[in-house]
Design a protein around this nucleic acid. Structure first.
Lengths: 245, 245
DNA sequence: GAGTGGTCTAGACCACCAA
DNA sequence: TGGTGGTCTAGACCACTCA
C-alpha cells in the first residue's frame, strides 16, 4: 500500500502518496466540509509514516486551500460557507480595493442540453442535461454583474431558483451544503466586450458599451469541471484585481 | 544575531529570520540574478542552524519565485532573462491558451514629472522626475497591446528608447541587466473601457470599441514599487487568463 | 565519485487553545 | 492540563547532475 519503492520507475515521494490518500478520504466523504480531520500523530500512525511526512502532505493541501490548519485546534476541511471564504473566488473590488457583499437578483433557472462546446468544457456528452441559471448581482441598488451559469444536471438534481435564493446567492456554499460538491479551483478568461440585448438592458447600459466578460470554469476534487459561468461586469466603479508572483 | 528567543513578544521562527538574511544578501547584491547561491549545508553552517531550517527558508523564497531550486545543480537567483521567465507576468494568451512572443514597436520615451497620484503609486514625491515609455506590442503584424509605462528616473538613469529596443522589448529583463532592478511581484487592476484617441488609432480601432485596460504596478525586493504600466489590449482573439485557488 | 537538492525519520520542545 | 499544530535538530539515505 504505502511503499517507498525507490528505484521504481514510477517513484513518488511518500508525502505525495499520503496526499492522495487524504484526498480520497475527502472525495469519499469521510471528512466533510467544516469537519476536523484526525491529528497529525493519528494519521502518521494510520499510514505508518512519521509525523513530518504527514505534515508535508497536509501542508500541500493547505496551500491549495483544501485544508485549513488552526494551531492549537486542529486541521479542518475548508468550506465556502465559512466567513471570509464566501468571497474567495471574487476578484471584483471597488475602486478602493474592498470586496463588497453583493445583492442577488434571481432571473431564471431552466433546463437545457449541453452543446458540443459545453460538453467539452464540462466533460459531458453533447446533449447531456444541464441546468442554466441567470441572475443579476447588484451593489447598492446598481446592477453590477450579469451572471449566466451552467451546471450538469446529474450531480445537482433538484437545483432550482428557490434553492439559489435561500442561499442568498452564494452558489459555492449552496453546492456544498445541498449537493456535497465542493469547488477547489477555478480558471477564468477575461475579455472586453460590448454590452448587448438582454444583458445591456439588465445592466442599464446602451448597446455596445464596454463591459468586462469573465468566463469561469470551476473544478471539484480530481480536477473535475462542475460549473461554467459567464459574468458580464460593469467596471465603471469597480475593477478586477489580480496579484502576479 | 540569530536567536530563538521563545517567549519574546516579537517571536519569529528561525527560518523567517534566515529568510530575511537571505533576502538581504539578494538586495545587497551578494548574489545576482542567475547566480548560484551557497549550498544548503554551507548556509546552515554560516547561520549556525540545521539544514532543515535553511531549507524551509529557501522553500519560501522558491515559492515566491525569488529563488529557483535545481536538484543536483544548486539553488539559483531567479531572473527574468531566463528562457521561460520572460513571459512570467504575461497573462494574455491566444484563444487556445498559448502564450505568444510579441513584437515590440517602440513609440516614444520622454522625461516627465510624477503628479500626486503617480507619486502615491510609485512612492515618490509629487514632482519627482520620471521616465515615460510608450510602445505597441503586435502579434503577427496585428496591433495587440498599447503600453504606457512610467518609472522613477533616479534608479533608471540613462534609460532610453535605444535600451528598450536593444532588449527586444523585454522590460523586466532590461531592468535587471542594465540597472540591477529585479521585479518580484506585481498587482494588476483590470477594466473594460472604450478605445479612444491616440490609442484607438494605434490599435486600429474605432472610437469607443471595447478594449481591456490592465493597470499594473510592479514591485522589487522589499515591496518597493518601481514601475507603473497601463496596457490597453485588443481582446478579439486573445484573452486574459487567470487561475483561482 | 563528489556535490547538490530531496526525502524520511525520531525525538525534543514551544505556542496556542479549550476545558 | 492535555491535545493540537509549529519549530528545530541530527542523521541517514535517495535522486539528480556533471566532470
Amino acid at each position: 500500500m504505502i511503499d517507498k519503492h525507490y528505484n521504481s520507475p514510477s517513484y513518488k515521494p511518500l508525502y505525495d502518496q499520503i496526499k492522495v490518500l487524504l484526498t480520497q478520504s475527502l472525495i469519499g466523504g469521510e471528512w466533510r466540509p467544516g469537519d476536523m480531520i484526525p491529528s497529525e500523530i493519528e494519521l502518521a500512525g494510520r499510514y505508518k509514516v512519521s509525523q513530518g511526512t504527514v505534515r508535508k502532505a497536509i501542508d500541500a493541501l493547505a496551500t491549495e486551500n483544501i485544508l485549513i490548519r488552526r494551531q492549537g485546534k486542529g486541521t479542518f476541511v475548508a468550506t465556502h460557507s465559512a466567513e471570509g471564504m464566501k468571497l474567495r473566488f471574487l476578484r471584483l473590488t471597488s475602486q478602493d480595493g474592498q470586496k463588497e457583499l453583493l445583492q442577488n437578483e434571481f432571473i431564471s433557472c431552466t433546463k437545457g442540453k449541453a452543446d458540443v462546446r459545453m460538453g467539452q468544457i464540462l466533460d459531458l456528452k453533447a446533449g447531456a442535461s444541464t441546468i442554466e441559471i441567470k441572475r443579476l448581482l447588484t451593489f447598492s441598488g446598481r446592477p453590477l454583474i450579469f451572471d449566466h451559469i451552467i451546471v450538469p444536471a446529474a450531480p445537482f438534481k433538484g437545483l432550482n431558483g428557490t434553492r439559489v435564493e435561500e442561499n442568498n446567492g452564494s452558489m459555492y456554499s449552496m453546492y456544498e451544503s445541498e449537493f456535497g460538491v465542493r469547488m477547489i479551483r477555478a480558471e477564468e478568461r477575461l475579455k472586453a466586450v460590448g454590452a448587448k440585448g438582454e444583458v445591456a438592458k439588465a445592466l442599464g447600459l446602451k448597446e455596445g458599451e464596454p463591459i468586462l466578460s469573465i468566463e469561469r470554469v470551476s473544478f471539484t476534487y480530481g480536477d473535475k469541471p462542475m460549473e461554467w459561468r459567464l459574468g458580464l461586469c460593469v467596471t465603471d466603479n469597480h475593477h478586477y484585481m489580480n496579484e502576479l508572483e
